[in-house]
Nucleic acid binder design. Sequence first.
DNA 1: CTGTTAGCGCTTTCAG
DNA 2: CTGAAAGCGCTAACAG
Lengths: 334, 334
Amino acid sequence: MSARRLPTLEDVAAKAGVSRATASRVVNADPRVRGESRRAVEAAIRELGYRPNRAARSLVRPDAASIAVVIPEAEERVFTDPFFSATLGAIYTKLSDSPVQVLLAVAPPGEREKIERYLRGGYTDGAIVVSHHRDDGISDVLLETRLPAVYIGRPYAGDVGLPFVDVDNEAGGRIAAEHLLSLGRRRIGTITGPLDMASGADRLMGWRQALEEAGLAADLVEHGDYTAASGAEGVKRLLAREPGMDALFVASDLMAISALHELQARGVRIPEDMAVVGFDDSQMAKLTRPPLTTILSTATGLAETAVEMLTALLRGDPVDPVVLPTELIRRGSA
Amino acid sequence: MSARRLPTLEDVAAKAGVSRATASRVVNADPRVRGESRRAVEAAIRELGYRPNRAARSLVRPDAASIAVVIPEAEERVFTDPFFSATLGAIYTKLSDSPVQVLLAVAPPGEREKIERYLRGGYTDGAIVVSHHRDDGISDVLLETRLPAVYIGRPYAGDVGLPFVDVDNEAGGRIAAEHLLSLGRRRIGTITGPLDMASGADRLMGWRQALEEAGLAADLVEHGDYTAASGAEGVKRLLAREPGMDALFVASDLMAISALHELQARGVRIPEDMAVVGFDDSQMAKLTRPPLTTILSTATGLAETAVEMLTALLRGDPVDPVVLPTELIRRGSA
DNA sequence: CTGTTAGCGCTTTCAG
DNA sequence: CTGAAAGCGCTAACAG
C-alpha cells in the first residue's frame, strides 16, 4: 500500500545497537533483557513506529487460529437481518476470550468464487457456514480442502458427512400448522423460505404434512426468501388468490413481521381475521402489536453449538450433527 | 490446533515428482506449467488436501491489506445496536470488491489491552475506530505505532491530528431543541449519550444552548449510554423529577424508541402529551407508532466516508477531518 | 543477559 | 517449460 518500506526488527536492532534476537525479546516482553538495552530498543521501536510483521511471526510461531464465518448472501442482507446479527454476535461473544480470530467471508450468490478463493487461500483454520444454498458449491470446496467446518443449518441433501447444527425445521412447520388448526382455522396459507435451503424446504414440508393429515388442501403456498420485502409480497399474492384465508404460517419472523404490517395496513385484524405464526423467536417478535406467535429457534443457541463443534474439530475430535428441539412460543398473533 | 502437520508445498511437489517451484506455479495458476506435471500437481493437491500457508505466502508477496474496525464496546452491544450493524454493513459493502480484508476488534471497556495488543500486534494495515471514549487509550496506541486510522465520531478533545468523520452533533442537538421550542413546548428534557464520547457531550451542548437562548432552564437532563435500557430508565427518572415535562430530546433513536415504549406504557400520548425527537434517523425510526421525528445522521454515510479516508491514508495521501451536515427529519412524534 | 545460527513455507529470479 | 537457490521477517535453540 504505502510506498515506503515499513521498519523491520533488523532496523530496530541496528538503531538500538543490539542484535535482532535481543530486539525480538523486548518486543515479546521477555524478562531477561537488561535495563540498558531494553530501553534502547524501546526507544528505537517508538522512534521508528515499528510494528511486528505478522506473517513473519506466525510463520515461525504458529499463532492463534482464525475461523471464517461464511455467508453466501448479499452484504446488505447480512447486516440487516437480525438472524445474522444474532448469529455473528453469538459467535464473536463465545470466542471473545479465546485467542481465535473471526473472519467474515460474505459474498452474494453471483460471486461464488470469492468465497471459494477465500476458503482455498489458506486464510483460515476452520469455517462456520451460515446460510447454505443447494448450489453454492461450498461443500465441494470444504470436502476437497478438508478444511474443518460446521454448518449452521443442515446442508442440502447430498452433502452428507459435513457436520451441522440445526433446529428441527420440519417439526417446527408442523407445530405451527397444528397450532393454527387447533384454533379452528381452516384456510391456512404459508410463506416459505427459499426452497434451495434445507430450512425453507423442511418448514414447508412440516406445514404441508400437518394440513394433509387434517384432510385440508395444502395449496396456499407462496415462496419468499427470508427478506422482509418477500414477506409483504407473499401475503399480497396469497390474499389475491384466496381472500378467505384465515391463518398464515410464515417461515421467518422477519418476513412475518413484514406480512403483519401489510395485513394491518389493509385493515385485516390480527388475530381475529388472520392468525399469524412466525419462525425464529427473534427479539423483534416481542415488539410487534400484537406480539408475534412464533417457533423457537435461537440463533444464539445454534451459533454457540456451532462454535463448540468447530472447536472440537480443530482439536481433532470427531463430531456428530446436532439437532436442537423447537417449540411454539405463543403470543398474541395466533 | 490439530496435532498432525498440514501438508506443505514441499509435500505436494514430492508426491507429484516435481520441484517446489513447479508446484507453486500451478497453485498460482501460472500458465507456463505443461499438461503433464500440472495434472500431477493438481492430483497431489487434491489427495493431500493441500492449502497454502498464508503466512509464508504473504511474507514473500505482500498480500491484500487488512483493516481493523475497532469498537471499544461489549460484543452484545455491537451486534444489537443498529448503528453498529449499519456501520459494519456499509464498511463491508464499500470494501467488498476490493481485496482488503476487514477484521473486527471488539472489546468491552474493561478489556482495553485486548484492542491495544491487537493494534500493536501488526494484525492490520489500518484501522477505523468506531465508538471512541475519552479514556479508552486507543489514540495513544495509534499515534505511537503510526497505524493509519480514521475515527467515525470525532475523537475526544486532545486527540487532535487524528483524522475523523462525524456529523455536526452540536448543531443536531440545537436543531432538535429549536424544533421542540417552535412547537410551543416549554418543559423540554433530554436523555444524553455517554458524556465521555464527543457525540454525547456535543448533542447535549447544542440542546442546552438552544434552551438557554430561549430563556429556559436546561435542567431536565438524564444521562444514558445509547443502549435501549438506558432510554427507558432515563424517561422514568425524568418523569419522576418533572411530571409536567412536555417534550424530550433523546440522543439516539435506539434510546428514543425505548423511551417511547415506556411513555406509551404509562398512557402518555405521543405527540400530544409529549413530543419526542431522536437522533440518527435509523431504519427503525420509520416503524414506530407514531413514527419518530429524528435528526439525520446516517451511519452509512459516515462509514463510507471513513473508508474513503482510510483508503487515501493507506495510499499515502493526507486527509482532513470531515463533518457531515445534519437536519431534522420530521415525522409523527414531534 | 545477549549474540549466532537455523530455519518456518512460500515465491521468484536466474539458469538451463 | 522446469529446477536450484536465495530470501521475505521473525523466533528459538544454543552457545557464550
